Simulated scan of single mutants.
Amino acid sequence: MTGLMRRNNFFDDFFTKELFDFNNAGFAQSGITQPSVNVKDMDEGFEIQVAAPGMKKEDFTVNLERNVLTISSEKQSQNEEKDEDGNFSRREFNYSSFRRSFTLPEAVEHENIEAAYEDGLLKISVPKKEKSTQMLKTIEVK
């Protein structure tokens, strides 16, 4: 009787595991959609570094609206493999996108923001306004 009570591992897995387990190694990981970002605060300005290897500079859009700097990218690709008869034997689609926004402080020069992409790293330079040096003046109280 114990042989009838014992369950087969195949059926255990089939009925107890989630059917669409996307964290399974057989599926692509889709949880990582945001690239790593570093922000350096230097005396002359800020430097925003976005790690985005395998992309081209045309893949990025950098916008400034009011004091919000937005970095975004949208990339689509399609890979097709055909057999000798011209029928599709495999077709893969890939779509990736991200969007990051940063609120800039009032002390930046909006007109002189620059962006460059090289070796998988998008660098955005945000210069600060020059600090006005004010002369100290003592006012006599009458």
Score class of each variant (00 low, 15 high):
54 G>K: 04
8 N>P: 00
61 T>M: 04
71 I>S: 02
72 S>L: 06
26 G>I: 01
142 K>I: 08
90 R>V: 06
14 F>W: 12
36 S>C: 04
118 E>V: 07
74 E>W: 01
20 F>D: 13
38 N>G: 05
65 E>W: 01
90 R>Y: 08
4 L>I: 09
25 A>L: 08
32 I>N: 12
132 S>G: 04
27 F>I: 01
51 A>L: 15
92 E>G: 01
94 N>R: 10
36 S>G: 08
73 S>M: 15
100 R>V: 11
5 M>I: 08
59 D>M: 02
80 E>H: 09
127 P>S: 07
58 E>L: 07
127 P>K: 06
5 M>S: 13
77 S>P: 01
22 F>V: 11
66 R>T: 13
124 I>G: 01
2 T>R: 09
27 F>E: 04
141 V>G: 00
37 V>L: 11
120 G>S: 03
57 K>W: 00
135 M>S: 05
110 H>P: 01
7 R>D: 09
5 M>R: 13
30 S>N: 12
118 E>H: 07
29 Q>D: 14
84 E>A: 11
129 K>F: 02
24 N>T: 03
136 L>P: 01
120 G>E: 03
110 H>L: 15
142 K>L: 13
136 L>G: 03
3 G>L: 14
15 F>R: 15
79 N>T: 14
119 D>G: 02
25 A>N: 10
70 T>L: 02
92 E>A: 14
132 S>Y: 07
46 F>K: 10
142 K>W: 03
42 M>R: 12
29 Q>Y: 11
20 F>P: 00
80 E>F: 05
108 V>H: 07
99 R>E: 12
106 E>R: 13
116 A>F: 03
112 N>V: 06
107 A>F: 15
139 I>R: 08
138 T>E: 11
61 T>F: 02
89 S>M: 13
132 S>L: 14
11 F>L: 14
57 K>M: 07
123 K>A: 06
52 A>P: 00
12 D>A: 09
